[in-house]
């Protein structure tokens, strides 16, 4: 039995550097592996729709006639499964998280393939 066993740790934190970072000034560094959000390379996409069918959360919608690739950022759970099943490797995970949103109207990010943009 002893008293004040935590004293050593207390002294350390009293004279040491704080364990936390000054957030707005010093931003957290993400690792290269961090799963933040899903990005798509529309030039490589063949609109096969495998990502949409395999998505556990049902967040991705692909339309071949419109050459459209759509992701609902609030439904996406960033599990990386779409990235791993994509036959063309056109999906990737980017390390920054989706920024918080105040209304749900802009939760869907839509990407169009090249030909549609040329037509328009």
């Amino acid at each position: 039995m002893a008293f004040n066993v935590i004293g050593k740790t207390v002294m350390k934190s009293l004279f040491g550097k704080p364990a936390t970072a000054m957030y707005p000034v010093i931003k957290n560094e993400f690792y290269p592996n961090t799963r933040g959000n899903i990005q798509v390379d529309m030039e490589k996409c063949i609109y096969c729709g495998i990502c949409g069918r395999r998505c556990p959360a049902g967040a991705i919608e692909v339309s071949k006639p419109d050459k459209k690739w759509e992701i609902d950022r609030t439904r996406c759970i960033v599990c990386n499964f779409c990235v791993q099943v994509c036959p063309k490797n056109c999906l990737s995970t980017e390390r920054h998280y989706t920024s918080p949103m105040t209304d749900k109207s802009n939760r869907i990010s839509t990407f169009f393939g090249q030909t549609v943009q040329e037509d328009a």
Binding site: I6, T9, S13, A19, F30, Y31, N33, T34, R35, I77, V78, C79, N80, F81, T93
Partner: peptide, 25 residues
């Protein structure tokens, strides 16, 4: 707080190796 401070280092390892801090997939 001190226990959770130490735990933070483990979570950082997770993020570095798997990409997630809580859900590793």
């Amino acid at each position: 707080m001190h226990c959770w401070r130490v735990r933070e280092k483990i979570l950082d390892i997770f993020e570095e190796t798997t990409g997630g801090r809580v859900i590793f997939s």
